[in-house]
């Protein structure tokens, strides 16, 4: 059974006002437990609106959202549980830190869940472990931390709820390459150790190519493409028409095909190296 399912999900901004706009048009998506789903699309394509439905923050104008088989509209409890089962991390999450110490801030989620103090403390330490925050930092004020540490503290705040589904909106935005590597590593660690499902919204095709098992492409409030990275990146022209890029190596593979020397579809550097080397080994004079 899919862990999250949406059925004809429709959402309208500013209903009955001059600013009315349909942000999501009848979106239906099925997400399997343990998957890593990448979500791509233009700014304004509806992806951020969509993910806010999955943890019950937004309510559909029509259609249904099911988390673990439960319709989020079936009652207040269902919606509240969804907050904790589906952890949502917004962009630039370091701007939401507020408490006196880092550990207090990370404890916010677990406390709202009504867990015992002992359990809360355990969760805080686990979460800090997932993101590699040292003990010494936990007793400091969050505002004394560096930018990268703050972001990790914010991510820990969501991981401390031990959500079965972790949704991240551009988690590496604004970070330098080292910072990006670290965050992606932390996410994979969490996924590996808890078996969580991960949904990541990103603009980086390279990130998606490396990490996602499935991809959903949004445009104007609808999912226009859905499939594995191999499926999606094979449709380079369609992506270009949508104003989206393909990973650089895919562009190289496409260009080589145009030039008359195809190396087959590639979307990671590793694949491209193997493909070119295969071609090299197949040469008569090699």
């Amino acid at each position: 059974m899919p862990i999250i399912q949406t059925e004809d999900l429709t959402y309208i901004y500013g209903p009955n006002t001059p600013f009315q706009r349909t942000a999501l048009h009848s979106v239906s998506l099925s997400i399997e437990e343990g998957a890593f789903l990448g979500v791509i699309g233009h700014t304004g394509s509806g992806k951020s609106t969509f993910i806010q439905h999955l943890n019950g923050l937004l309510k559909p104008a029509s259609g249904h959202v099911y988390v673990d088989g439960v319709d989020l509209a079936s009652g207040k409890e269902a919606a509240l549980n969804a907050r904790f089962q589906v952890g949502l991390l917004f962009q630039y999450p370091e701007y939401q830190l507020f408490d006196e110490t880092v550990s207090q801030d990370i404890a916010f989620g677990p406390r709202n869940m009504g867990l015992s103090e002992a359990e809360v403390e355990a969760r805080v330490h686990d979460a800090a472990g997932f993101v590699g925050l040292e003990e010494a930092l936990l007793s400091k004020s969050p505002f004394e931390l560096s930018g990268g540490e703050k972001r990790r503290a914010a991510i820990a705040g969501v991981m401390a709820m031990r959500p079965r589904v972790l949704i991240l909106d551009e988690p590496t935005a604004g970070l330098d390459p080292r910072g990006q590597e670290q965050i992606l590593d932390n996410i994979l660690t969490y996924k590996r150790e808890t078996g969580a499902t991960v949904i990541m919204v990103t603009h980086s095709m390279e990130e998606i190519a490396r990490l996602a098992d499935t991809i959903a492409v949004f445009k104007s409030g609808q999912i226009v493409m859905e499939g594995t990275p191999a499926d999606i990146f094979a449709q380079g022209d369609a992506l270009r028409d949508l104003g989206l890029a393909v990973p650089a190596v895919t562009r190289i593979a496409m260009r080589l095909a145009e030039l008359g020397r195809p190396i087959g579809p590639c979307y990671t550097v590793k694949q491209a190296v193997s493909a070119v080397m295969a071609l090299e080994r197949g040469r008569p004079d090699a």
């Binding site: 650089a248 190596v249 260009r255 020397r261």
Partner: peptide, 15 residues
């Protein structure tokens, strides 16, 4: 990417 593809193509083409 265009330069890259061209370079790889030349490599195979020349030989």
């Amino acid at each position: 990417p265009e330069d890259c593809a061209a370079a790889i193509y030349s490599h195979f083409d020349i030989s």
